Amino acid sequence: MKREDDFEIRRKHLADLSDEELYERFWKLTEQIVDPLIDLAYNHTSSSIERSVLLRMGFSSIESDVIVAEGLKAGLLGKGMGNVVLKYGDLKGMSYLEAGRQLAQGKGWNEAAALFKGGVVNC
């Protein structure tokens, strides 16, 4: 079965637009498509995403599991576990690897939570 060519009909609403207007329309429509995805990425996470971030930061899978589990208990998952580790390291004046390992040992969670007091994004 051959498809009927309806290009001319479908492009009528665009026919009178200049190249600049077409360009602007393209980016406006692109933003409408991408904005919900960006919003979703900024406001939602999961334990597996946070473990993945920590693995890429250089932590072992065991350390990552513990940090995420403790962060979940502290209500900090929505802040990003990599972010929590970095901020805690800054607070303590140590590298993020040292800070993360300390958190993985169960130390420093009260101080880490205090850094993020305020609204926590629910995930």
Rank of each mutant, 00 (worst) to 15 (best):
M1E: 13
M1V: 12
K2L: 13
E4F: 12
E8N: 05
I9R: 12
I9W: 05
R11F: 13
R11I: 15
K12E: 12
K12H: 03
H13E: 14
H13A: 09
L14G: 02
L14R: 15
L14W: 08
L14A: 04
A15G: 02
A15S: 13
A15F: 12
D16W: 14
L17S: 05
S18M: 04
D19E: 01
D19H: 00
D19C: 00
E20A: 07
E20L: 03
E21P: 06
L22F: 01
Y23G: 14
Y23Q: 15
E24P: 06
E24L: 07
W27E: 13
T30K: 15
E31V: 11
Q32A: 14
Q32R: 15
V34C: 03
D35R: 12
D35G: 00
P36V: 02
P36W: 03
L37V: 08
L37K: 04
D39I: 03
L40R: 09
A41E: 06
Y42S: 04
Y42T: 01
N43Y: 01
N43G: 09
H44C: 12
T45D: 12
T45H: 11
S46W: 00
S47N: 12
S48N: 10
I49V: 14
E50I: 09
R51H: 11
R51F: 08
S52R: 07
L54E: 02
L55W: 00
L55C: 04
L55Q: 04
L55V: 07
R56K: 13
R56A: 09
G58Q: 06
G58E: 03
G58F: 11
F59M: 09
F59K: 01
I62W: 03
I62F: 06
E63S: 06
E63N: 04
S64Y: 01
S64Q: 02
D65H: 08
D65N: 11
V68N: 02
A69M: 10
E70G: 01
E70I: 00
G71A: 06
L72E: 15
L72K: 14
K73I: 10
A74G: 06
A74T: 09
G75C: 04
L76T: 03
L76A: 08
L77D: 14
G78M: 07
K79G: 14
G82S: 02
N83W: 06
N83L: 12
N83P: 02
N83V: 15
V84M: 07
V85N: 10
V85G: 04
K87A: 10
Y88R: 04
Y88A: 06
Y88F: 15
G89Q: 01
K92V: 08
M94D: 05
S95P: 08
Y96S: 06
Y96W: 13
Y96C: 02
Y96A: 07
L97F: 07
E98V: 14
E98W: 01
A99P: 02
A99T: 10
G100S: 11
R101M: 10
R101C: 02
Q102E: 11
Q102H: 07
Q102G: 11
G106N: 11
K107W: 10
W109D: 00
N110V: 10
E111K: 15
E111M: 05
E111A: 13
A112Q: 04
A112P: 03
A113M: 06
A113F: 01
A114G: 13
G118M: 08
G118T: 11
G118A: 10
G118N: 13
G119I: 14
G119N: 05
G119S: 08
V120D: 05
V121A: 10
N122G: 03
N122M: 06
N122Q: 07
C123T: 06
C123S: 03
